[in-house]
Amino acid sequence: MAEKVVNQEMIKPENLVYQKTKVLNDNVMHYCPGCGHGTAHRIIAEVIEEMDIQSEIIGIAPVGCSVLMYNYFNVDMQEAAHGRAPAVGTAVKRLLPEKFVFTYQGDGDLAAIGTAETIHACNRGENITMFFINNGIYGMTGGQMAPTTLEGMKSSTSPYGRDIPMMGNPLKMTELVAQLPGTCYVTRQAVHDPSHVRKTKKAVRKALEYQKKNMGTSFIEIVSNCNSGWKMAPVEANNWMVENMFPFFPLGDLKVPEEK
């Protein structure tokens, strides 16, 4: 078949409207096709580029699917033990208060083993930005049930669906930290379609602006898909997420600081 690049005469630098940001490097991401992690990485990197803080930001990588995220970002990164990214982020921010610090964690990391670190970092009002990717499942280890798994949702350790009397209720981490006095900005967003990607990007920008003003912890949950864990095609997984995840995890701002 012929070369698939069409309108060859339009491909000039002056016509360029969108290209991958330079804050992400050229490594191919190891994520499954259609995974929300890639989009989340890209919008964080785009905001870093827009704010021109590439040399001033330090990221804390988690354990989970995004454990290798330091391979993709052209910024300083530090790997943390499972669930301990907010604690490491606290240390980095206290030692280098003039730098921007963000943590990036999945739901197995932030909402399960790292619950204590998360809640206490938010309660202390550490001046860091926390990204929480919620896909309702332990993706990396093979689709086991996570604290955020929905009622009735099938996973490899709840093959008949999550049974509330037996396995407990799904945890709404974002609602939990919104009540804490240390947080300044708490929001829940998604990255499955263009409009939500744009909204999430605005939220990421706001969170880093609040960090610049030393206003306290900013917490962004991104509801994402896990098509491998859910055993669906990527587009089907996104539709499933809209139908099932959003009623339980409604999108929007939970806490917004008062403008001074």
Partner: peptide, 27 residues
């Protein structure tokens, strides 16, 4: 791109691409 005349260069495809493989030009 299956139809060279249909694309408006809105970059919706590029901003949802998880792997950032799409570059968009508009004229």
């Amino acid at each position: 791109l299956n139809d060279p005349d249909g694309c408006t260069g809105c970059s919706n495809c590029a901003i949802v691409c998880p792997d950032g493989v799409i570059t968009v030009y508009r004229q």
